[in-house]
Amino acid sequence: MSNGTVAKPKIAISACLMGAQVRFNGGHKQSQLCSQQLAEHFDFIPVCPEVAIGLGIPREAIRLVGNPQHPEAVGTVTPELNVTRPLAEYGQQMADTLGDICGYIFMQKSPSCGLERVKVYDHNGVPQGGGGRGLYAQAFCDRHPDLPVEEDGRLNDPVLRENFLTRVFAYAAWQPLRQKHLTRRDLIEFHSRYKYLLMAHNPVQYKALGNLLGSMGKTDPNELGPRYFSALMAALKKCATRGTHTNVLQHLSGYLKHVIDSEDKQEVQHLIGQYRRGIVPLVVPLTLLKHHLRQHPDPYLAQQAYLQPHPENLSLRNAI
């Protein structure tokens, strides 16, 4: 897939992660990964819901209290300060305003922005087990269930980072189809591009989605399309493993068996084996396969998102 044809994706992000001094103590939580390494590839849209609803800088910290499934956000010193409704309403408002984003990076552990395991206290001030989700994040994600979302801390894991950004670019690639009247050909061609990426992430859903489109019959593609895409994004959320990547690499190498000599075949198999055993990263066998595919182009493989699901200079596959 050529990412040169896709506009720089927009990603919303907690403003403190971009260095804005908007936290309750007047500080920030700048992420070097986001503010420097990723900023070249994405248009970041900073958002701080707590400032947006009128809380000052600095301000009294808030925390989640009550039922972990439906907590309230109240002041840590002044429990009468209750911003539950403003945070939820702002989340709904921004979900409508930011309709063209392709991902969201949230501040972890935040009572407004945390995605999971945010501390929720009982009314006696004792933390409850399990935790909850920030109220702004909850309201926003409820409106955009297919949107790729992640917390900043988890992006330090190379596998989770690659997974999130793969989903961001897949989401971005779907957006032009959302804006038009879908045809059956649109759906089949899109699915064809994502065949091997799906196989790497979720082999079971790869087969299920193929069956879904294969049996669409007279179903309106504009009714089927959103269902297909929701299932695709859910499938891609599952991280690919060395085992599933190896399976895809073997499939790709099969296209070369009649066009490269035995020595080159042995080299390809050797590097795939080294990757499977954790000796080399994914980029090593992929680079060799892409070299041979340039020498012996195949129109079907040339369109495969798996070969380049994100810009090469992000170097995401160098670390997995």
Score class of each variant (00 low, 15 high):
Leu286Ser: 08
Tyr275Gly: 06
Leu213Asp: 01
Pro86Cys: 09
Leu212Ile: 03
Asp152Val: 14
Asn202Pro: 02
Leu182Cys: 13
Gly134Cys: 09
Ala15Phe: 05
Tyr121Leu: 13
Ile188Asp: 04
Thr78Ala: 09
Gly26Ala: 05
Phe42Gln: 04
Cys102Ile: 04
Leu182Tyr: 03
Met94Asn: 11
Arg193Trp: 04
Gln269Leu: 14
Ser2Arg: 15
Asn124His: 13
Leu115Ile: 02
Pro49Leu: 10
Ser110Thr: 07
Leu197Lys: 00
Ala139Met: 01
His258Met: 12
Asp298Tyr: 08
Asn67Arg: 03
Pro79Phe: 05
Met216Thr: 04
Gly114Val: 07
Thr76Gln: 12
Asn82Lys: 13
Ser2Phe: 09
Cys113Asn: 12
Ile105Asn: 02
Glu116Arg: 15
Glu150Phe: 03
Gly54Glu: 12
His144Gln: 13
His258Ile: 01
Phe44Ile: 05
Gly27Asn: 07
Val51Lys: 12
Gln138Tyr: 03
Ala12His: 06
Leu212Pro: 10
Leu282Gln: 00
Ala7Met: 09
Pro127Phe: 08
Arg277Phe: 10
Asp146Met: 14
Tyr194Arg: 08
Gly153Tyr: 02
Gly125Arg: 05
Pro86Thr: 06
Ala172Tyr: 01
Ala170Tyr: 03
Ser253Lys: 12
Lys29Ala: 13
Arg277Glu: 12
Val118Thr: 03
Ala200Asn: 07
Ala240Ile: 01
Val83Ala: 05
Leu38Pro: 00
Met94Gln: 15
Gly131Ile: 03
